[in-house]
Design a protein around this nucleic acid. Structure first.
Lengths: 340, 340
DNA sequence: CGGGGCCTTGCAATCGATTGTAGTCGCCAG
DNA sequence: CTGGCGACTACAATCGATTGCAAGGCCCCG
């Protein structure tokens, strides 16, 4: 490996003290019990030799890896980039590193992936892949491992979750559409197995009632992808030909809706308005530019990491069950006044 | 932490052997020196108790972390999702985990980020952030750490690199344009400090000569982002009003070009053709759908991980200096016959 | 019947740090 | 002169595995 690595023993010998003394001198916690002059000498030697503590040796003794695991349902989804960036940034300032694991959505690899991370003895875990009922999360929590959920949440109320405020987000969209004059609005829902799918669906219904929307049919897509969005929107339009707007539960579903709406002979924006959710990169460049709810994903990552670090530092403190981050609305050309 | 964790000592006691024997029985390498019956007994006990070796203890002794570090210049760039996915997938099959570090492109944090990873004693490193002259990569290599570059490469020929074949990619675009009838083609180049910027630029010139392109002006953008692409394309069009096509060095530059071309009063595709490079997600939905070179990024990640694992397993074998992955062309509506 | 060699297993050192406990030294009071 | 206290520092155990070496048992052959 790296030749001539400097160990604590080297520092101790060079400074003329025992390794235990050198250790205490180097550790801010225990520095106070060591003679200040000795501390200075050890520090100087450590600096001069370029001493770096061996993380494995330290971790073995202290039972900490200074490592956090993160489980992503699909790294290729641009949604997760900003979350990862936020998490990584926050962790880095506290000296923690981020171990990434990707669950292939095709097979259910989440079990092995989570176990692999747990076996690495990470100090905590951030789960971006929660299902509403998620035994993996419960198991981790039962084992006493600090865990937080991000983006989506399970029913495990004991595990903190940092998520977007779907009720507020759908509210932004619905108020926008109602303000434009829409009263017959359909919802392309995401899978009810995820909190985002279910939450946006419930919010849709609630806002529809509150805002006096006459007609508010819902069709549920089997996944948050484009083709299901296409199929479901077709069905929605066939069954409810008078709809003037479609609220999709995410951007990809909305892109599917774009296609279905076009094929049905409507102009998006003019004939039927369509909205997305998440506002992933490039939604301003699709045709027409998509009106979508924007969720502060980077901030979400930062928050999740912060909460996790708190839990790691002090596992007793009572933590918030959930934090809802307030979204904003990016209004673009896929929404307009309804056709008369 | 987790209560009652099972250690090797527990397994040994339960199986009635010494820990060293248990260790050997559990390790496929050394299993052969242990009595088959003993092996079976130890295996059974380990299985029954749910024994999991402690990675830190093992790593401390064997000087391996079974961990690989990856340095990403910008996690939010959708380009890197597939690369990460590929790397993670390949590493996982060999029991390695992936430590992610993001270099904020704003400050030069690459030094500290790389050092942080190195101090964690990763068994190898994958660098996606190489500059053409990159002292960090050299330093790692000099320290004897297995390193591979991905996507971009530095001038360090000793360090393997898995990159897209830019010469072939630009060739695809140029042949496509020339076939359509274009003879006056401009290039929006990326920064010459990156191998991708320089390589595509040189390839552009070479193919222009080879294919008989009359006019082949180049302007270099300061970064691979949209606004620089916009500014540079404006300049390109002003100085060369007869251009009928623009080859951009990546998709974002091409989107900038879209805007500049529109503002100059041309229709993209009809008036001036524009091509992108990378074909990140959603390029098929921009207006007009973008013709772009598609690079097999997931495969790139898999290859990089494979090469790195080989280097880790056997640091002596001679490795390829560089592997060029063949791109394909996604032909869409941003390219068409030139205006007459 | 004794010794050499093979197969198997145990002993103990080791990786590099942290930390509880014991010991040393100087100084002051009795 | 001695006991005791305070301030430091050294010793050694420990975390959980791996591994070189030695030792034990057994068989076989001379």
């Amino acid at each position: 490996m790296v030749i001539g690595r400097i160990t604590l023993k080297d520092v101790a010998r060079e400074a003329g003290v025992h390794t235990s003394t050198a250790s205490r001198a180097l550790n801010p916690q225990t520095q106070s019990v060591v003679n200040p002059e000795t501390v200075a000498r050890v520090l100087e030697v450590a600096q001069r030799l370029g001493y770096r503590p061996h993380p494995l040796a330290r971790g073995l003794r202290t039972n900490q890896t200074m490592t956090v695991g993160m489980v992503i349902p699909d790294v290729e989804n641009p949604l997760f980039g900003p979350i990862i960036a936020g998490v990584e940034h926050r962790l880095g300032t506290d000296g923690y590193s981020l171990l990434i694991a990707n669950t292939d959505p095709r097979d259910d690899s989440s079990l092995t992936v989570i176990d692999a991370l747990a076996e690495r003895r990470v100090d905590g875990m951030i789960i971006a892949s929660a299902s509403r009922v998620d035994e993996h999360i419960r198991r981790l929590h039962d084992q006493g491992l600090p865990v937080v959920q991000v983006n989506r949440m399970s029913n495990e109320v004991e595990v903190p979750a940092i998520v977007g405020d779907d009720h507020a987000g759908i509210g932004l969209v619905m108020e926008h559409l109602v303000e434009l004059g829409h009263r017959r609005i359909g919802h392309v829902a995401g899978p009810g197995t995820f909190s985002t799918g279910l939450g946006r669906r419930e919010a849709f219904l609630e806002w529809a009632g509150k805002l006096g929307v006459h007609e508010a049919p819902i069709e549920e897509a089997e996944s948050f992808r484009m083709m299901p969005g296409y199929r479901v929107t077709r069905r929605l339009i066939e069954r409810n030909p008078d709809l003037t707007a479609i609220v999709a539960a995410n951007d990809l579903l909305a892109l599917g809706a774009y296609q279905a709406v076009s094929e049905a002979g409507f102009t998006i924006g003019q004939g039927i308005s369509v909205t997305g959710y998440n506002d992933v990169p490039f939604m301003q460049f699709v045709q027409p530019p998509m009106t979508a709810v924007r969720v502060p994903y980077r901030k979400m990552g930062v928050e999740a990491a912060s909460v996790l670090l708190e839990m790691i530092a002090d596992s007793e403190t009572v933590r918030p069950g959930a934090v809802w981050l307030t979204p904003t609305l990016s209004v673009r050309e896929s929404t307009a006044r309804p056709r008369s």
